[in-house]
Design a protein around this nucleic acid. Structure first.
Lengths: 177, 177
DNA sequence: CGGTACTTTCAATCATTTTTGAAAACCAAT
DNA sequence: ATTGGTTTTCAAAAATGATTGAAAGTACCG
């Protein structure tokens, strides 16, 4: 396979993954492109590589900067801006976890708490079932949140080791517990 | 707050969360509705509760069944079908992890492997950077996949305990490692 | 200043996804 | 085998989300 072909394939796959997870396909593609570019790229270069308009490139670059995944660079002497992506994938993952937690998990947790405050006069089975579901849900979502918080702060090595340890345990006691 | 109001709020929040994560808003709402209904519901009831058409209700119910989150029930004497959701949230979470892993993580892992096979004659910095990014990426994605595999099989209690242990550790050695 | 080289914005357009609703298929009871 | 209640399908319509492109904005330079 040629490099160009491989890049293309990777960019497409990353775009598809993104769009399955609620991230704008083009934004994911721009990110993919920057990830595999050793040098920072101008808006121009990105537009050309992905066949998108200036406006589109600009918007998605801003969004990526907003997510903390991409940064601007001013090359001295040059007037135009260049963009490059954080290359340490663990950092990228952490940044994504941080943002999604903030943007999506927190609001849901908030609603779950609010919704627990039902007028307790209603003692129907419906109310009971509702409160039970909600409280289970907020337990799990809360745990996920806590977990992501840990992952977000952890050193890559520590986190990895813990995973391995967990994995080893599971293997040993596989179908018995 | 009244029960009806609380339900509505919850259904909306769940729908919004779903759509941020690439899941059809209505599908998430149907799921939410069934989650908080102690009794199984007919398609009719769901259509009414969410103001959606028969076709829409049907399609999303099928999709939920497909994801293993909802099941049909035939009430004896009745001709119409009733639907209910798995209420154990840990099981729901596991099912979702299982499906997304299968549907989205696996294909990406496959592409990452394919894309490593570049004609090694191209020894440019671009090729190097590309291969490095890809290999880092497949390490992380592979680890995420393995982690989800564990989570997917684990008993709720065991998993929770491990999380707590991880959390305790992090707290103790917070900013030093 | 005024010009040049860019970046940003945003209303209009285009593309994709979701929803509808009516027709077809299904299926149990007569 | 016909009826009536029900589910399923799917082409078309509606809604939503993404993209464009041109105009407005910004900043640097002489």
């Amino acid at each position: 396979m040629q490099l160009a072909e491989a890049k293309e394939k990777f960019i497409q796959a990353w775009g598809a993954l993104g769009s399955n997870w609620g991230i704008n396909r083009t934004m994911a593609q721009v990110h993919a492109l920057l990830l595999v570019s050793p040098e920072s790229l101008s808006a121009e270069a990105i537009m050309d590589a992905l066949n998108i308009s200036r406006g589109n490139a600009n918007m998605n670059l801003r969004a990526l900067i907003d997510w903390g995944l991409v940064q601007k660079e001013h090359k001295s002497g040059e007037r135009r801006e260049y963009f490059y992506a954080e290359k340490d994938i663990w950092q990228v993952a952490q940044q994504v976890m941080l943002e999604r937690r903030k943007r999506e998990l927190k609001p849901v947790l908030k609603v779950l708490e609010e919704v627990k405050e039902i007028d307790p006069k209603e003692e129907t089975p419906e109310t009971k079932a509702f409160l039970e579901s909600v409280s289970n849900l907020s337990t799990i979502v809360g745990q996920a949140d806590k977990f992501l918080d840990i992952a977000t702060r952890a050193e890559r090595g520590w986190f990895l080791n813990t995973l391995i340890r967990m994995f080893a345990r599971t293997m040993k006691s596989d179908s018995k517990e």
